[in-house]
């Protein structure tokens, strides 16, 4: 009885203010889409850096005059560092072999080189790419070391760009969320105004405050939830139609655009949760300020 009453009141209110409800719903959807975009961007960057980070290593080129004792000592020292996962010694001959393999298509490149022209090196794999600079600096001055090289710079830039993009989009999204809460509040205010006589009688005959409030709260919640579902649906379709095809068409992008269902569900759940929050805030504001029960 009560539930049926609340639901029919909610539907009636939404229908009466259809235009405002559509405005509120679509603002919620847009703000949540931005939020979803931020999340997906984060996932793409995460995928990219993960696959690159796995390949990040520090190449420590050794001086030609380094004694084998010096090389031994350095290798032992580096292997003991807690950030280091693995150290491999690459001799001059091995380096030449690798070079030959890498440029197997263009023999003129390695034919010009003598087998001992490439320096021997230590290849250091790290537990986490974030220690790259630190470890590199420590090795730099050691005896027998000629030059230290690492590829972490690109990753750092990428993460910086990602942080900036995320911040900007998040700020935009929050602004839009405030706007959607206000639009929801206004939708409800119109509903309250249209029904002020009924509300007056409800108070008169002793309807409880929550009884009067609930249909309006539900109205805001439904508007927000519709927006959230719209945004979640768009994200889902974008994954199914756009990202999957993109990954197929451009294979080297595949790892970046490949999300597990669990990741996707997390994004969708987050959108619905935030949407619900926005709806509650909007309807809470409206019923508190305009219902005066």
């Amino acid at each position: 009885m009560k539930i049926r009453y609340f639901l029919s009141e909610t539907v009636n209110n939404l229908r009466r203010n259809a235009l405002m409800a559509v405005a509120a719903t679509s603002t919620v959807a847009i703000s949540l889409l931005l939020l979803g975009g931020v999340e997906i961007l984060g996932m793409v960057v995460g995928n990219v850096t993960n696959s690159w980070e796995a390949k990040v290593e520090i190449s420590t080129f050794l001086r030609d005059d380094a004694s084998s004792g010096e090389i031994q000592a350095l290798e032992t020292e580096v292997a003991q560092m807690p950030e280091v996962k693995d150290v491999t010694y690459v001799s001059k001959a091995q380096a030449y072999e690798e070079f030959k393999e890498t440029y197997a298509d263009t023999p003129q490149l390695y034919e010009a080189l003598s087998p001992d022209s490439l320096p021997a090196s230590l290849r250091i794999a790290l537990t986490d790419a974030q220690y790259t600079q630190e470890v590199a600096a420590r090795i730099q001055g050691a005896a027998g070391v000629d030059e230290v090289r690492f590829g972490g710079e690109i990753i750092r830039r990428l993460l910086q760009v990602n942080t900036l993009l995320r911040t900007v989009t998040l700020v935009l999204s929050v602004i839009l969320m405030v706007a959607s809460a206000a639009l929801i509040a206004n939708t409800i205010r119109l509903g309250i105004y249209a029904r002020r006589e009924e509300i007056g009688i409800m108070k008169l005959v002793g309807a409880t405050n929550w009884f009067i409030r609930i249909p309006f709260m539900l109205e805001g919640l439904v508007a927000a939830l519709l927006g959230a579902l719209l945004a979640a649906g768009i994200v889902w379709f974008a994954d199914a139609l756009l990202f999957t095809r993109l990954a197929q068409a451009v294979p080297f992008l595949a790892p970046a655009f490949n999300f597990s269902n669990r990741e996707l569900m997390t994004v969708v759940a987050a959108l619905v949760a935030v949407g619900t929050g926005v709806g509650l805030v909007g309807s809470g504001m409206a019923t508190r300020r305009f219902l005066q029960v």
Binding site: E197, E198, G200, I201, V205, A207, F211, I212
Partner: peptide, 21 residues
């Protein structure tokens, strides 16, 4: 009187009971 114009006589009286559950 303070009756609701869009409700019938029955509905006006029923409303008072309805809203107290």
């Amino acid at each position: 009187f303070k009756l609701l114009p869009n409700k019938t006589v029955f509905e006006n009286v029923a409303f008072a009971l309805q809203v107290i559950g």
